[in-house]
Write a protein that binds this DNA or RNA. Sequence first.
RNA 1: GCCACCUUAGCUCAGUUGGUUAGAGCGACUGUUUUGUAAACAGUAGGUCGUCGGUUCGAAUCCGACAGGUGGCUCCA
Length: 622
Amino acid sequence: MGDLENSKLQAMRHSLAHVMATALTNLWPEVKLGIGPAVDTGFYYDVDLGSKMLTEEDFKSITEEMRKVINADQDFEQYDLSIGEALKWAKSNNQTYKTNLLNDLKRSGTTVAKDLEAAELGTITEGNSAVETVSFYKNGEFTDLCRGPHVESTGKVGAFKLMRVSGAYWRGNEKNAQMQRIYGAAFDTKEQLNKHLEMLEEAKKRDHRKLGQEMDLFLFSELVGSGLPMFTPRGTVLREELASFSNQLRQKHGFQKVWIPNITKTDLYKVSGHWDKFGDELFLVESQETSDKFALKPMNCPHHNQIFASQARSYREMPVKYLETTTVYRDEKSGELGGLSRVRAVTQDDSHVYCRSDQIEQELNFLLADANELYKTVNMRLRVRLSYRDDSDAYLGTKELWETAQKQLKNAVVKSKLDYFEQDGEAAFYGPKIDFMATDALGREHQLATVQLDFVQPERFELEYTGEDGKKHRPIMIHCALLGSIERFLSVYIEHSAGKFPVWLAPEQVRIITVNQEDSTVQFAQELLERAIKLNLRATVDNNNESVGKKIRSSEILKIPYTVVIGEKEITSGNLAPRIRRDMEVESDLETFQADHFLITVANEAVARVDKTTLYDGDRKL
RNA sequence: GCCACCUUAGCUCAGUUGGUUAGAGCGACUGUUUUGUAAACAGUAGGUCGUCGGUUCGAAUCCGACAGGUGGCUCCA
């Protein structure tokens, strides 16, 4: 989409916010308006209706009122007022939020206007000079403080649908009053809107919480507590296959597995500096035997540092690389939890490199290659953001160190051929980083993997190695998680794949169904199962007293990739006609198999992590 | 943590304006059937209606608190 079209769409969406505000004012004249910008897929307006609580049932009347405003095709007229006059307008209309905005604009030298507000209000930030005049838009009887731009008239606003209402703090600050935010989706055409709504529908069908239950992957229990997922045998297969893939990739590059306990004395975090950073998020553990204070680990690096520091290190053994898939615990605020995407027990496929500053690039090459391979295998497009420091003093470590590190970061990324962009001021205070963005089958972007350089922890823990010169040197640390957190990754991946896992990840790869329960049939099925298990396949026999159709159905519901039916025919011929999950692409000559040939083919497919699944494509429903 | 909404059997859901023993489908179990590529038939067992408290002659239904969930906000990356 071109910039021009894009800005037209933005104007249209923003105009719809005004149309909605007009409708709300018509319906509830006492409404106080906050701000109403265009967003990604539509628009919203924050409003204060006093004690009136909007629900989705109000959408019908609001939408009808909006239709009236649209049908009246009122012109959007722009005019300027001095700040003083604008304040009078706000006061006489009892628009206290607008008064608040105008007062800030008046002394804009001191205003910290958020980007959204700046765009919405047209705050002139250059030179920090106070604003003297402000822009208004009027349509029909409705007037609003607004920079625009708008479409010419209310009749030209495209297709929209009110989506939901939720709470939102005035100016995004939790100390301020809470307003009601009404969201609408809006697009140029009805078709585009429908396509968007269809995508949301599809997303709902794939919701990992729904599939997690249907496919028996994971669960929560009120007795265990919120944000603490448990995984069934099926879900655990997914976790372990993913983790072992992620580990294998790095083990090929010299990473070694380590193991650490899940709790530690809090002193560890006083040394690392995390004590202050984590604050309330730290789960504290009380010892009944000693006076030591413990905490559940919220990250692994300080523990790993102890392993590194346990010996005198030579430059010859650098880099030292540790790997561990382990769970960290963070006490998130209750309202922030949701499904597997935000949990309180987070399993990271964590790794740490301790290296010399001249080895950064080489190590990054490895990690980028690993990330590339992992995301290629799970069929997600990857792009990266290089997050650098800016000129402020908010960073630790020398400028020279930052410069050489950032240069190596960029070299490695260029070499990896990944799409990338660079951003100053996005680095952590302790080092620059690479953030990976993975795009799922519905086009949504997720941040999963990260690679971060760290100049601070080696300092805090006084990590060192002896150089060629016989002197002590500080290593650089590189933190890396390829999946990020397994829980979060699964929340994304289950929706990405809609639960149609490729063979290597499928909790159950082959299901053997018997046509009847006669001894010969069951025995043949049992023997086939044994051969499958010898090939490390995850297979089961279903010899329940049910119709074949019924048993096929339950196999389909579990999205098992291959289902074979065993009856008279198979027993006599020794050939199988596997039923292949519908989304998988198959070469035509693979339709009937000699039994062992079939099992070996599937086993090879699993080992090679071949992915035959076809992903969602908006125009082609699967 | 804040705002709104939600919580009835393992799952998905009915349940009139508060009124006897709270229903259905799927699943589970038992029996009949011996099944050929997405649902055979019959029967049985499952619920202190999330928990605690209140209003009422009477509460799944009304009110409150708490827990859990959902959508946002804030946070986090």
